[in-house]
């Protein structure tokens, strides 16, 4: 089992190192994160999905706190 752990860790560390090298190379050659985000948004509609999951989580929290959110339940002076 220890030998398997060693092999797995070596593979994972090598992959992480390769990823870090690629990220560094991308930044050095002029990569732009906003451009990447736009491309992803166009393809996967990230903004819509993020908005959807925000609404779902808000509804879930509101159903958990029966008496409203802690901020709303607090007495107003």
């Amino acid at each position: 089992m220890k030998k398997a752990w060693k092999v797995i860790l070596i593979i994972v560390l090598a992959a992480i190192l390769a990823g870090v090298i690629l990220i560094a190379a991308g930044y050095l050659t002029g990569a732009d994160t906003s451009r990447i985000y736009e491309g992803m948004d166009q393809r996967y509609q990230l903004a819509n999905k993020i908005e959807y999951y925000k609404n779902v989580s808000d509804e879930a929290f509101s159903s958990i706190f029966v008496f409203g959110s802690p901020s709303e339940a607090a007495p107003q002076n």
Partner: peptide, 23 residues
Amino acid sequence: GLTVFADIMLVLGVGIIVLALGF
């Protein structure tokens, strides 16, 4: 979805790290 080579390298780097963590 990407045309700039630098962006492709950056995304590939992130993707490899995520895959490694998943492994």
